[in-house]
Computed example of a mutant assay.
Amino acid sequence: MPPTTAVVTGGESGIGRATALALAAAGMDVGLTWFTDESAAQAVAVEIVRLGRRAAVARMDATRLSEIATAVDGLAVDLGGLDVYVHNAGGGPGGRLVDLDLQTWRHTLTLNLDAAFVGVQRAAQRMIEAGRGGRILAVTSVHADLPGMGAAAYSAAKHGITGLIRTAALELAVHGITANTVAPGEIATPMTGLDGVDPYTVDRPGIPAGRPGDPREIAAVVAFLASPAAAYVTGASWTVDGGMGLMGAQAAPLLTSDAWRR
């Protein structure tokens, strides 16, 4: 049975916005959470309605863990069910390992890993109660597999989400629920400072594709994994990075200074 309802966290911009619209275009009513920009979230809701689907909006601060289950429950009630849950909210400040204070470390893990646990757990509970199966997806990062300078806390959190989702895949399969992650590379979003920029106009010699990604290219993969066509895909991590992760051996000989260390 095709999914008809979806919740996307962090849905007011970037990958979350593109995902909400892709799921609506695929025939789902969509609930989305926002944190800083309610008007942007309401604008996404208007676009969902224009696609002929119902929309619901809720504020959620992913560092206030009690708000997450409340938001998931509220949106699911508004939509009349929950077939697809996309945990996309995340981010956080960087900092080199030796300089990183414990408060920043804990904040980043709460915002990313703890929030994912709470959201995924509540979505799974609702799906099991409904008995219709479902799809659970988490947007991670290439840093879930590849280290990055100044990304100790962020990378650790994204590694953790991958482990969480793979365990969910093992435990939830008996209920007809799949669980997968999508790991973007550099994407034209507010987080990368490229919001609203046409990625085809940005030169990235270090990426085989030669450019950053478009949020809609991430959303397309999420929409596939949320579809009946992906019923046999679970516990997988889908890297969508234009080939960035392949560049280690190719890029290293071309570095001409130690600037990357700083």
Score class of each variant (00 low, 15 high):
Leu164Trp: 07
Leu172Ser: 08
Ala151Asp: 05
Met191Asn: 07
Met191Asp: 09
Leu137Gln: 08
Ser155Ile: 02
Asn180Ile: 10
Leu137Arg: 06
Gly134Lys: 03
Val182Trp: 07
Lys158Leu: 09
Thr110His: 00
Gly119Leu: 05
Leu194Asp: 05
His159Cys: 13
Tyr154Ile: 05
Ala168Asp: 08
Ala183Ile: 01
Ala153Gln: 14
Ala156Met: 11
Gly133Tyr: 01
Thr167Glu: 11
Gly185Tyr: 04
Ile136Phe: 00
His175Arg: 06
Gly119Ile: 02
Pro199Gln: 02
Ala144Trp: 03
Gly133Ser: 05
Asp114Ala: 14
Thr140Cys: 07
Arg135Val: 10
Ala144Asp: 14
Ile187Cys: 07
Asp114Glu: 14
Gly185Pro: 05
Thr178Ile: 04
Met191Ala: 15
Leu164Gln: 09
Leu111Arg: 13
Ile161Pro: 10
Gly148Phe: 02
Leu164Lys: 09
Leu111Trp: 03
Pro199Trp: 00
Pro147Gln: 00
Ala179Phe: 04
Arg135Ile: 02
Ile165Thr: 08
Gly193Pro: 01
Ala151Pro: 00
Ala115Met: 03
Ile177Gln: 11
Ser155Leu: 04
Gly160Lys: 10
Ala123Met: 12
Arg132Ser: 12
Asp195Glu: 15
Gly163Ser: 12
Gly176Ser: 10
Leu170Arg: 15
Val120Gln: 11
Ala169Ile: 05
Leu137Glu: 09
Ala173Arg: 14
His143Glu: 12
Glu171Gln: 14
Ile161Gln: 11
Met127Trp: 02
Val118Pro: 08
Gly176Asn: 05
Val139Ile: 15
Thr178Trp: 06
Ile136Tyr: 01
Gly196Asn: 07
Asn180Pro: 12
Glu171Met: 08
Asp195Trp: 01
Gly163Leu: 09
Glu171Ser: 13
Arg132Leu: 07
Val182Ile: 15
Arg135Gln: 09
Pro199Glu: 01
Val174Ser: 15
His143Met: 08
Thr189Gly: 10
Thr140Ser: 12
Pro147Glu: 01
Ser141Ile: 05
